[in-house]
Amino acid sequence: MNEFRYPRQLRLLTGGDFKQVFSRASIKVSDKHLLILACPNELDHSRIGFVISKKNIRLAVNRNRVRRIIRESFRLNQHDLPNVDIVILARKGLGDIENPDVHSLIKRSWSRLVKKAKATARPKPTSNK
């Protein structure tokens, strides 16, 4: 049976963890309101971190709401995600959309992330001339 907990091991905690994702991001999932950067890790699970600035989502209640929705979605989908470190960056307007729309946005983003991770993990075919 799968566990759906959210312990410290599933979070990016230090500045070095975030810096590594920003410098080595090989997977990018972009949307109008959201940007996901990811890089492979050596662990047997994925980890997540958030960069949600006051500039992009003005009210703290909206920043926390968005963070809570994405964290819950990550918790429920963690077993389907590849072994990558993920940074979620909020863009302008994310705090203005309703909860069901945020849920559908992050669900689409997870599927795109999985698809791109599989594509980058596959070795590129070489042509023999």
Rank of each mutant, 00 (worst) to 15 (best):
A117C: 15
A119L: 05
D96A: 14
G49S: 10
L43I: 01
L113K: 01
H103Y: 14
D17R: 04
K118H: 09
K107L: 07
R112G: 03
V87E: 08
N99D: 12
L10R: 05
F50T: 04
A90Q: 12
L59A: 15
P82T: 01
A119C: 04
A90N: 10
L89H: 13
L37G: 07
L37F: 11
A119E: 15
A119D: 12
D80Q: 06
K118A: 11
R63D: 11
A121Q: 13
V84R: 01
F50L: 09
R75W: 11
P7T: 03
S26L: 13
V66I: 14
I88P: 00
T120Y: 13
H45A: 05
S104E: 14
R71A: 15
T120V: 15
H103A: 10
N99V: 14
I97M: 13
L34S: 11
R75Q: 15
D101F: 09
G16H: 10
V21C: 09
V29K: 01
M1K: 07
H79E: 06
N56W: 05
Q78V: 04
K124P: 02
V51Q: 11
D85G: 07
V66N: 10
P40I: 00
T126K: 12
F50K: 04
Q20C: 10
G16Q: 08
V29P: 05
K115S: 09
D96G: 14
K28R: 15
E42G: 12
P123Y: 05
R58V: 07
R71Q: 13
I97L: 12
S53K: 06
V21L: 09
S104R: 15
I36Q: 12
P123W: 03
L13K: 15
D101E: 12
S73V: 02
L89R: 14
R58E: 04
R122P: 02
P40T: 00
L13D: 06
N77R: 15
I88Y: 00
A117I: 11
A38Q: 12
K28M: 06
K124D: 09
K54R: 15
R108W: 03
D80L: 07
I27G: 01
D44T: 04
I57M: 02
L94Q: 03
R63T: 12
I88W: 00
R5W: 08
L81N: 03
M1D: 08
N83S: 06
A60N: 06
S30C: 08
S73R: 10
D31L: 12
S104C: 12
N41P: 08
R65F: 05
G93Y: 09
H103P: 06
R91D: 04
R63C: 09
S104F: 11
D101I: 05
R11V: 06
N62A: 14
K92L: 04
F50Q: 05
I57Y: 01
L35N: 05
A38F: 14
L89S: 09
F74V: 14
L113M: 02
H79K: 14
V51E: 07
R112S: 09
Q78Y: 02
T120M: 13
R5D: 13
